[in-house]
């Protein structure tokens, strides 16, 4: 069933921006591998949600994408991983950082400068970007994330949601092809989280940045994604379109937090009421229900 699901997603390898095959990784001192035979393809412009139970290998996989594994974490890496046409094991973190930006769960771990714009400029200084160019890129990144007005404020004085936007701006200023965000909204209130998902959605749509979002709260996040990967015990167990993945039996068994809209669809199906499609968010569910409810009435 899952194999079928994996194959039903037609993958165009020529559009691949990330490609791993047979990836196996064991942390130094680890008894068992944290990644087990991970093979996947992510296309340029994809918005991927990467989910699965804690300890399933999500963060470890993210670390492979920007070269933290194997360059910073030693341990044993087998298989191949290519990101933006670069073989990760053959290129330094510094080189990969130009293509892959990483945003963490807690922005406090990532921000340290005295003003927002200095924080955003920091990565560019490290890359040796010329001064005039830097100014333009910092302003652009601040505008794209909606925090231009906060540029002179101290990051630690801002709200959690604003801080997370600063963290995203820092990464965006580097103009990465790929942005990897590891649970970027877990400390935020729901509206704050929604704004972050919108900012990320915008970057994906308008700038074509490939997004890989590690997330448990699928109710809020799934609106924007076109590709969902579920991991369990180091393996990729589901890989496909959101509606196929959320409606699969194994997603329920692994304990993925399937959106309520999809769960309602499933509960109705069990009782013999079929909606035309699998909804993954509330707007879709409302429309599909309106169809069924008015049709059966008329």
């Amino acid at each position: 069933m899952d194999d079928i699901l994996c194959e039903s997603r037609t993958v165009n390898k020529t559009l691949a921006i990330i490609n791993t095959s047979g990836l196996i990784y064991t942390y130094p001192g680890g008894r068992e591998p944290s990644l087990v035979d991970v093979s996947l393809t992510i296309e340029k412009g994809d918005y991927v949600i990467l989910t699965g139970p804690s300890g399933c290998g999500k963060t470890t996989l993210c670390r492979c994408l920007n070269g933290l594994i194997p360059h910073f974490y030693s341990g044993k890496l087998e298989g191949e991983i290519k990101v933006a046409s670069l073989t990760v094991s053959e290129h330094s973190i510094y080189e990969l950082a130009k293509h892959v930006g990483l945003v963490f769960q807690n922005p406090e771990n990532q921000l340290f400068a005295l003003s927002v714009e200095k924080d955003v400029a920091f990565g560019l200084e490290n890359l040796g970007v010329p001064r005039e160019d830097m100014r333009a890129r910092v302003d652009w990144a601040l505008q794209m994330t909606g925090i231009y007005d906060l540029r002179e404020r101290a990051p630690h004085e801002l709200s959690g949601g604003q801080q997370q936007r600063v963290a995203i701006a820092c990464v965006l200023a580097m103009k990465p092809d790929i942005m990897v965000l590891d649970e970027p909204t877990s400390f935020l209130d729901p509206l704050g989280a929604q704004k972050i998902f919108e900012v990320i959605g915008d970057l994906n749509k308008k700038l074509g940045i490939t997004v890989i979002l590690v997330e448990h709260r699928l109710d809020l996040a799934s609106k924007y994604a076109n590709h969902v990967i579920v991991m369990d015990e180091g393996k990729v167990v589901l890989d496909g379109k959101p509606l196929d993945v959320f409606d699969s039996e194994s997603a329920r068994l692994i304990g993925v937090g399937i959106p309520k809209a999809t769960r309602l669809y499933q509960a109705l199906r069990q009782s013999g009421v079929y909606l035309n499609r699998v909804p993954v968010n509330s707007q879709e569910a409302t429309l599909l229900l309106q169809e069924v409810l008015t049709r059966d009435r008329g």
Binding site: P190, L191, A261, R263, S282, A285, L289
Partner: peptide
């Protein structure tokens, strides 16, 4: 700054049909 639960969002769009809006549980 809170977003209503997904089930209640769905039902808010169905009130025209005479359904209640204050539902939060899937079942």
């Amino acid at each position: 700054s809170i977003v209503p639960p997904q089930i209640s969002q769905i039902f808010m769009g169905l009130t025209d049909l005479g359904l209640p809006f204050d539902i939060i549980d899937v079942y």
